[in-house]
Design a protein around this nucleic acid. Sequence first.
RNA 1: GUUCCCGUCGUCUAAUGGUGAGGACGGCGGCCUUUCAAGCCGCCAAUGCUCGGUUCAAUUCCGGCCGGGAACGCCA
Length: 461
Amino acid sequence: MSVRTRFAPSPTGYLHIGGARTALFSWAYARRHGGKFILRVEDTDLERSTADSVDAILEGMKWLGLDWDEGPFFQMQRLARYREVAGQLIASGHAYYDYLSREELEALRKDQLARGEKPRYDGRWRPERVKGKTPPKDRPPVIRFRTPEEGEVGWHDLVKGPIAFPNGELDDLVLLRADGVPTYNFGVVVDDLDMDITHVIRGDDHVNNTPRQIHIFSALKRKLPYFAHVPMILGADGERLSKRHGAVSVMQYRDEGYLPEALVNYLARLGWSHGDEEMFSKESFVSWFDLEHVSRSPAQFNPEKLAWLNQQYLKAAPDARLASLVAAELKSRDVPVQNGPPLERVIALLKERASTIAQLADEATLFYRWTGEATIELEENVSKALRILKARLATVPWNRAAINDAIKEVIKSSGLKLPQLAMPLRLLLTGRPQTPSIDAVLELLGRETVLLRLAHHLETD
RNA sequence: GUUCCCGUCGUCUAAUGGUGAGGACGGCGGCCUUUCAAGCCGCCAAUGCUCGGUUCAAUUCCGGCCGGGAACGCCA
């Protein structure tokens, strides 16, 4: 049987880092084995699900290049099917109608908690206990699963190894609400069955749901899929990832100037490894990916390492591609590029110096926007040397080597050391103490701009 | 509280019943240099436990302890 995996987000927000990695692993497993990757939207939480979230999640997946073969399927469009399966379970004695109201349930929990017990449904509407009891008239029942009370459930997790739970820990979970909307554990099972999912790869936080789901699979007399629970991603402080950790949304990384392949590489490497490999293509990742090398313990998200990886990818990316990304960024900042040097050449000069597109745009700005401010006082001899240089630059052939020669000559004739001239020159021309080689900057800036900016400072001395 | 999961440098991880416990990020230092980067080189740094057991040998296997996390909903 060929592999079929799925990603099943609930549309209650954007695609976050943790979900993205789960999706990535699930996707990679399918691709690795020539199987299918299915996208299913678990939108049964009517209160919190939104169409915007669906769009945001799909957008995030597309940006990361996690393409799916089937779907997106929506659970809310499959209601009839859940009802049908719930009916089967009632017929076979594995489920029953429960008429307990929410208020009564709430009270029950409170009592149990007060007595120091684990809060759970007490099974009062179980078929074996209801004889003589008549269902309340106008209260629509929910359908509950009749969980085995003895023994234990276990499975061999493809990441974590053997796991088992005592059945006594589990209570009778609601399968179908009164309005016919399935609960999570039921929807998942019906869908994984109907969609022929062979490998359920999901977050660690579902380990506790798995025994309940296994019971439903068994009651339906169906073969279990393989389960693989991947550990969670923690914030850099070791706490659960949340907004206060800065960027948790995948799209935020795009907006901050990360390349999708860098994020994918980083995520792949977080909680999974292939020997000493740190930087690898998506193709390599797919060809190497396996569940055995997925870590069993949670991993902390490390922004510095992501930044480093992004820088590596930036350095390797074609100038034209970076230019269009930087152009978009500059446009959003209202930095005009049309009258300056070609952006691609600027990028070529700068791309080793930035770890994000945003930083690249910061650096590039010096070629397109100039404030004219330079808060330095020039020594008389430096000022004089700059005037001489300015005169030379007016006539010298405009290329890096010739510019460099001109600078060297002026240094020689004025008796200055190179930094003594280069630093003020850099500051006057760009307003910044740090830039790439000054001759390269001059060349790109262009003769006209250089002379203009120099004149601005030297005339006002 | 109950159940379940987890525990190698600060972080991501490799490896192993016998090792100098390896790599990467980071940090520190050096080289290069026209500044800042980049690059190259070097250094720092770990098997949670003064616990028990198995073994000739345990960081590795078993147990205990400690620590962290998750779940316990008519949320997913």
